[in-house]
């Protein structure tokens, strides 16, 4: 298939995945808002979405202060924010439009309808209808996208490039969230007070944002702790949002696409690192350091996929 088409499909799915991640984070924030504890916790949960997408400075310049409403408005419907759901979805649709003829009509229809439903929706409109309903609806649409993608597309290159984009974004998001979380935990360690409880809620935020709370309970049958969360998110391949699961899937797809592509060696490297790593050891070298490294490697892989397969000039 055309390199440019592959590139568009890759970005279409990558951006759709990012939407889901943003929405989950907002949902998590809304939930913890309801807990009285959190308000005094010090680390503002509403900064997370801004930190994750690297838009904090831009946000502060436009909105002044961080508050739940402002962040939701900024992350949902602000077209000046390239990481807002609306901006991202507009890109998804543009990507899809550019490769319309590679998509099943069901998939195009799914994307197009989602876009048509929100393209004129201001934050006020969303508030009027209920923000929580809107977030839930968005998650539904993301699931529908994934379902239609894997349920209707021919098992060919188009689908594989889309899933590649999805996995890369997912791995990147998990790594970023975990990194942010561990940094926050580090920062708060020295403070006195109701640390245990707040730590618990912070961890809940992370697990919920990664849709991994249930998986944690099922895997460890023990109380919540950061090392175990890190182990789950980094190493447990049965958790769909774990780094290990994402990297394995990336490797599987690339092997099918072209086993001799130059990017393969980097992917194998990464797999090897994840194979041999131990969480206790990670604690010593610094979890943050490792995760930062991981994100950089994902960026490299992503770029090499573009030169190997998409003939990006």
């Amino acid at each position: 298939m055309l390199g440019r088409a592959a590139d568009n499909l890759f970005w279409m799915a990558k951006n759709m995945e990012r939407i889901e991640n943003v929405v989950r984070l907002l949902q998590t924030g809304r939930t913890s808002n309801m807990l009285s504890d959190n308000g005094s916790a010090g680390d503002n949960i509403w900064e997370m979405p801004l930190d994750i997408c690297g838009q904090k400075d831009a946000f502060l310049a436009d909105y002044g202060e961080v508050s739940d409403g402002r962040v939701c408005a900024y992350m949902l419907s602000d077209m000046n924010n390239p990481s807002s759901v609306r901006s991202l979805l507009s890109n998804v649709r543009e990507n899809a439009r550019a490769t319309r003829h590679f998509l099943t009509s069901d998939l195009w229809d799914c994307i197009n309808r989602t876009w048509l439903s929100i393209k004129d929706l201001s934050y006020k409109d969303i508030q009027r209808r209920s923000i929580d309903d809107h977030l839930e609806w968005m998650i539904d649409r993301c699931y529908m996208f994934k379902g239609v993608l894997s349920g209707s597309m021919r098992r060919g290159e188009s689908l594989q490039f889309a899933i590649l984009g999805q996995c890369i974004e997912r791995a990147d998001n998990s790594a970023r969230l975990l990194r942010l979380h561990s940094a926050n935990a580090e920062k708060n360690k020295t403070k006195q007070g109701n640390l245990q409880v707040r730590d618990y809620y912070r961890s809940m935020v992370l697990l919920n944002a990664l849709n991994a709370y249930k998986a944690y309970r099922e895997t460890f049958h023990s109380s919540i702790d950061l090392d175990k969360i890190a182990e789950l998110i980094i190493l447990h391949k049965e958790v769909p949002r774990s780094l290990r699961a994402c990297v394995d899937e990336i490797a599987d797809i690339l092997r099918v696409l072209n086993p001799t592509a130059s990017v393969m060696s980097e992917v194998y490297d990464l797999q090897y690192r994840l194979d041999t790593i131990q969480i206790a050891q990670l604690r010593r070298v610094g979890l943050g350091h490792f995760l930062l490294d991981f994100s950089k490697q994902m960026d490299e892989i992503s770029m090499n996929i573009q030169t190997d397969f998409m003939m990006v000039q």
Binding site: L2, R100, H101, M311
Partner: peptide
């Protein structure tokens, strides 16, 4: 393009080499 099962290309997808036209594909 879809109905005929052929590639939908833009100028940037094509290039000329030794008098022949090629498209940039994933292979």
């Amino acid at each position: 393009a879809q109905e005929m099962g052929i590639e939908l290309v833009e100028g940037q997808d094509l290039f000329v080499d030794e008098g022949y036209v090629y498209m940039r594909t994933t292979r």
